[in-house]
């Protein structure tokens, strides 16, 4: 369920938090996210000292380590501008778990204040920018995989499909059991590789069976997992971060 959230008017400036997976493996997706925001007339500040939100340590139970990493990120956003995160997973970490992680510490208020202005990219484009997209691409059948953290932790099952729905040449197909996890789950894929493999196998088959020619997602963990599965089987079906897909088709 999407919690009722009041969105601010479109600001002049935002911070962009690129996430570690994008930084290392999918940097173009980060840059495309920045371009989408800049095209809306927003100045995008990219704090250069950003690293990782700390979620891998957090979900593994190493909360002292996660807190130290999170504390370094807390310091990066001193001005009251929105913080845009092109990932439901890292966005959920900052919005939901930072306040938990710092509860009862002197950083508690700061963590809560930051949590209140963290937005996932597609959420921000839809609810704050009210973006209008003009599709310049070829007709294509596309499946959207919404990450579990975007869907359930941040309540954002609808924003990415809303953006894709604006692309006139794109047909959005829905895979069976669309709401089911792809099996990535961060360190879950490492700790329980066989269960994770069974899950990604079902997910990739469902996307293919839906008749998709391409898939998009707003989380690079899922992209690495599902895309890696298709690639491993030498399938022509490929995936892409939604920021890249939107930028590519509208620029």
């Amino acid at each position: 369920m999407t919690p009722l959230k009041l969105y601010p008017p479109k600001p002049d400036k935002v911070y962009f938090y690129g996430t570690c997976l994008i930084d290392m493996f999918y940097p173009e997706a980060g840059l495309d996210g920045i371009r989408l925001l800049e095209r809306e007339g927003i100045e995008v500040i990219f704090p250069f000292e950003q690293t990782c939100c700390g979620q891998p340590a957090y979900t593994s139970g190493y909360h002292d380590e996660a807190r130290a990493v999170a504390e370094a990120q807390l310091a990066l956003f001193p001005e009251p501008w929105p913080v845009i995160v092109p990932s439901g997973s890292c966005g959920g970490m900052m919005r939901t778990h930072y306040p938990q992680l710092f509860a009862g510490t002197e950083r508690q208020d700061r963590a809560r204040e930051l949590a209140g202005r963290v937005f996932e990219l597609t959420e921000f484009l839809v609810h704050v920018c009210h973006v209008r997209l003009a599709d310049k691409g070829e007709p294509q059948r596309v499946a959207m995989h919404t990450s579990c953290s975007a869907r359930r932790e941040m309540g954002l099952a609808d924003t990415a499909p809303a953006l894709l729905g604006q692309l006139a040449q794109v047909t959005l197909v829905e895979q069976a059991r669309a709401a089911e996890c792809c099996g990535f789950g961060g360190t879950f894929a490492v700790r329980h590789p066989e269960v994770s493999a069974a899950m990604v196998e079902d997910k990739s088959q469902a996307i293919e069976a839906a008749g998709a020619e391409h898939f998009v997602t707003s989380d690079c963990g899922c992209l690495m997992n599902i895309g890696g599965r298709f690639e491993h089987q030498n399938k022509s079906l490929r995936g892409e971060h939604i920021a890249s897909y939107l930028w590519r088709r509208t620029s």
Binding site: M24, Y26, L31, V190, A197, G228, H232
Partner: peptide, 25 residues
């Protein structure tokens, strides 16, 4: 890369990080 690559290809680090791309941008 361990059991990951039994079912998926290994992720490859990008030639240029987002930090570097933003600098260039």
């Amino acid at each position: 890369l361990g059991p990951w690559t039994d079912y998926r290809t290994a992720p490859k680090p990008a030639a240029t990080s987002l930090h570097a791309l933003v600098k260039r941008h």
